[in-house]
Amino acid sequence: MPDFFSLFSLPKNFSIDEKELERNYFALQRQYHPDKFVAGTASERIAALNKSTEITNAYQVLSNPLKRAEYLLAEHNIRVNGENDNVKPSHELLMEIMEIREKLSEAEARDLKNLEAFAETEIKESIGRLAKDFAGNELEKAAEDAMRLKYLTKFLDEIKLKKRSVRPL
C-alpha cells in the first residue's frame, strides 16, 4: 500500500495545500474512476474499481485534519483512535472536556448558537496547534491535540443534533 501523501504527490506534512490535494484527487479520479473503464476488460474494470477506491480512501484521510493527524501518528505507532489506542488523554484535557460538556447539558435553546460558534473556534485552534506540533516534531503534544480535536468534533455534532431537536415545527 503506497503512502497516502506520495499517492497525491504531496510532501509528508500535517500542513498541506488543500487546493493542491483536491486538484490531484480530481486528476487521479479522471484517470482511474470506473466510469472511464466501462468498456474495458473485466480485469481492467476490477483494477479501476480497486484503484479508484484506494484514491477515495486516501483522500478521505488526507482531506480531514483529524484523520490526517491520526494517520501521521499511526506511522510512529502512536494510536489515539479506537480500542487499540496506546495513548490516553491527559488529566487537563479530560477536565477541559468535562467542563465543555457541562455547558452543553445546561444549555437552553437560545445558548446553542453561541456554543456552536465556541466549538468551531476551538476546533480551528486545535488544528492550528497540530500544525505547530507536527512542524516541531512534538509527537506527544500532537497526540494530545489530536484527542482534543476528536472530542471537540464530537461535541460540535452533538450541539447540531440538539439544535435540531429543539427546533420549532
Partner: peptide, 8 residues
C-alpha cells in the same frame, strides 16, 4: 479476472 486486476 480477479487474479489479473493487479497486472491490469
Amino acid at each position: 479476472n480477479k487474479m489479473c486486476a493487479d497486472f491490469a
